[in-house]
Structure formats: structure tokens, C-alpha cells
Design a protein around this nucleic acid. Sequence first.
RNA 1: GGCGGCGUAGCUCAGUUGGUCAGAGCACACGGCUCAUAAUCGUGUUGUCGUCGGUUCGAGUCCGACCGCCGCUACCA
Length: 503
Amino acid sequence: MARFYVTTPIYYVNDVPHVGSAYTTVNADGLARWHRLLGDDTFFLTGTDEHGLKIQRAADENGLTPQEQADQTSERFKEAWKLLDISYDDFIRTTEPRHRVAVQQLLQEIYDNGDIELETYEGPYCVSCEGYYAESDLIDGVLCPIHLRPVETLSEENYFFKLSRYEQPLLDWYAAHPDFVQPDSKRNEAIGLIKGGLRDISITRTSLDWGVPVPWADGHVFYVWYDALINYATAVGYGSEPERFEQWWPHVHHLIGKDILRFHCVYWPAMLLSAGIEPLPHINVHGFLLVGGEKISKSGQKLTAITPAELVDEFGVDPLRYHLLRHTPLGADGEFSFEAITERYNADLANNLGNLLSRVATVVGSKCDGVGPAPSPASPLAAVAAEVYGAVAAAWDAISPSDALDATWRLIRETNAALEAAEPWKADPGPEVDAVLGDALEVLRIVSILASPALPTAPAEVWRRIGLPGRPAEQRLPHAAEWGGYPGRLPVEKGPPLFPRKK
RNA sequence: GGCGGCGUAGCUCAGUUGGUCAGAGCACACGGCUCAUAAUCGUGUUGUCGUCGGUUCGAGUCCGACCGCCGCUACCA
């Protein structure tokens, strides 16, 4: 059986969910749902990243323990994903014991291979921040950029990962695996980073204890990023269930935003190579959603601080998900706006899909006594449906949800045109009217399945209204997309508009 | 500064290895229809494919320069 393992980044719990994290997560969810339709054994992972100085500091400010701080914010992510109907199979938290075990084992592996060495780190340190700065970040070369107080030079013994040894191995892997990092523009960026030269990286800290302890050295904890990356391995059994890990790891796909490209496309693969874990994951890098050209942020003004919950209130879960998947192709940055989501909603959901259901249900009511007829095997729409299925499958395979939805809506448009040509509402009841209405019902059946990865709710309602038992998400492709699946002689219910027009 | 990315119709974007590549959807205009959520169907307008050169029989599609925008340069998708 085919397997598919998809991950989102684990979100850092110093922030609450915003539209950007929703964007990544909804895309991952769409992919997971698509693969479940294919009947693949699918594993969808998301979670939260909970170690590090920022968390410890936030906890101190709030009078909480770091764990309590992490518990609270982690819960916010779970709530957000519930609201968005995110069908994750596992929600990992880096403070869980299973993760500690995996981190210690993986990094011990690297240590044993000789790729981790103790070195002295020396640099400008701000006591108030309890952290080091790069010389270039200092104000006037001597002041902490946050506290505007003089920094002092401190040195600390840290363990370093010998990343510099992996320049060539990484370049070799990139050369041998053209689809390692997608899209190509991001792949080139990653290769550029590597060719620019890799420095060894500090992976432990002694100045704080909110982290995974280094097994071979008391007083050291792993630096948050190197513990975080390992979550993808932890969740499928690294360190605890070797056979499970072997099964899933070859099928892993990471979805990430461009801000963490360096970590995922350079550091993480190098760590895996060092630990002897192959193959390397597939990585798909997407851009940012911008509001008015600006990056979304929780601290921005009202527009950029828009939350997923507000959008769900305004548009509903399905329309928000549809817009996120359809509007901004994975890869480059995209613009997010109320105008755009409203346009999408009206044009695609209300006018095309929703209205198709309405008009078909009405005519079935008047010409067929409300009993849906079967489609005709020779319908011209059968060929369109077959073509569309091919395009949809290819698009999901290429991790292009927007193309998959675009193709699906082509079928809806063709069906509206076919109805227009046949004008069943003018004709007398009979085989010809039955055929064209049956075809339209068949399209609604197929579209319900093909749209279900994006829309978790509405397609099930379409399915029910055209009299089908079960749910679209329970169907199995490609068989379920073959023309002729609508059996006919089923009660068709009109019901209220599926997506009432906005404004 | 270094490295990298982007610039195609009003908007969001497609455009494999150079030769119906000047496109799709939305928006807009006109016409049709009235089953349908003022929905739908048909037709159509807009672009010197950032600029200037070059390679070529032929270039959004390759090369160079330039202009504009942006990203990364060690911890926010």
C-alpha cells in the first residue's frame, strides 16, 4: 500500500496561530485528505515547538512555569486547527517524553559519528536578554538593540555540529534528487546558501535549562532549533519503534514557509546524513501571505493582525480554506485580502458550485418529481470529467492545490454550459431531460469528491442533497471519479443556498 | 556589501527543452436565457510579455547591461 507522510512546521508557542500558519496547515490538510481519498496510508503531523529562551522568558513574565506557558499556547493551536477542520493524525509537542528520547538518540548518533565537537563560543552578550548577539546587530557596535545597554563579551563552551563537512554531501544530494526541494526557485536558493559556504553551528546551550538535556554532557541542553527539527522523526517512531520509522520515513513531505528554508533545506538534511538517516525528506517551500504588501504578524495593526477565527466567522470554514488553497499557489508570496476572498466566494462557491446545485435540484423537482435520474454513459461531460480527474490528480501529486481546484471548477463551468445548451427546464419530461439532469447530478457527485480535500463540509451536504449515502470523503479514487457512479432513482433535495452570496 | 528571487492584460496568475505563446479565471462591455443564490450561457476589449542591446531563420522563452521590487545573511508559517 502506498504511504504518504506530510508535516507542517511545529509552531513556536511564543506566538498564537495567525493566517500564515493557517495557510501552511490548510495546505498540508488538503494534501492529507487527498491521499486518504486515494486510499493511501496517510500520516499527517503538526504540533508545537516549546523549548528555548523565548518561552522561558515569556513564562517568567506571566508568572508561569515554562511548561504551563507552553501548555496554554499549544492549546491555542489545537483550538485553531479544530476550527479549521484540520485532520491531523498526530499533534507533537517537543516537551513530550517521546521527543526527548528521539532527540537524545539522534544527536547521540551524530556525536558518536564524530560530527559534534566541543568548542568555545565567544561573543557580545546582553545580561538582560540573557543572549548573544551578532556584532552586526549591535547599536553603535556596543549596545544591545533591545535594552540599549552595553553588552559584555562572554564566552561559553558549546557543542558544535560540524556542518562545514556537509557542503559537498548536500550538494551531491541536491544534484541527484531534483525534486528534493520544491519549487525550483527555492531549491536554487538552498543550493546557493550551501555554495556560499557552511559554518559549523552551535547546537547546545548552558545558559538555560528549558530544553532537552545533552546526554553526554551535564548542564547542556540542546538549542531549540536542533531539537525542533527532530520532531518529524519522533512522530513516526524514531528512537522507540524502529520498524514503524522505517515504514514511514521514506514517504515524508515537509511543508514549510520560506523563512525557515535554511533550517530545513540545509541544517536538517545535514543532520540526517550525519545520523545515517536516508532518504532525505521531500521539502516544499512556500511564500508568505501578505496583507497590503506587508507580512502578517500578530503585533501589526488591525489588518495584518487578522486571525483565522475572525475569517471563519466572516466567511465560514470551507470558503476560507478554499480561498487559501485556490488563491495563492504554493511557492511565491501572495496577497491576502477581504476583496479577494469575497470575489472567490461569490464567483466560485456561490455562483458556480452552489448555484449549479440549486438549479439542478429545482429542475429535478419540476421535471422528475424530485427523483434524480442516472447520467448517460455517452455524455460529453464524461470525457471532460475524465480529463479533469487526470489534471486534479497530477496537481495534487505536484503539490499544487490551486491547480487541482482550478481543474475541478472547469468541470462545473462545463456543466453549467451543458445545461444552458440543453435547456431541460423548457423541455417535456422524458429521456432527454433525464439524461442532461443525470449528467449534472453525476458531475455534482464527482465534484463533491474532488473538492472534499479543500472543503471538509459543503461537499458532504451536496452529497446528501442529491440522495447519496455515506460521505464524499469515504470514497476511493480513482474508481469513484469514473463516470457513471450516480445510480439515479435517488431523492434530490433543494435546500437553502449552500453559499449565500456576499454583499 | 555578499548571495538569491521576482517584474506577462485593471486584478490573481499559466506559459516544458526558443518556432499558433500572446493565454486562463476574475473584473468590465454587449447580446441571449430566465431553471437557478441579480445566478447562468455566448461574444468581445485591454497587453510594445520591466528597459536597452545581443545570439538566432525565429525569444516572455537563451546571453549581457540597466531600472524597479523583494528575500536571506544563524532561531515568527
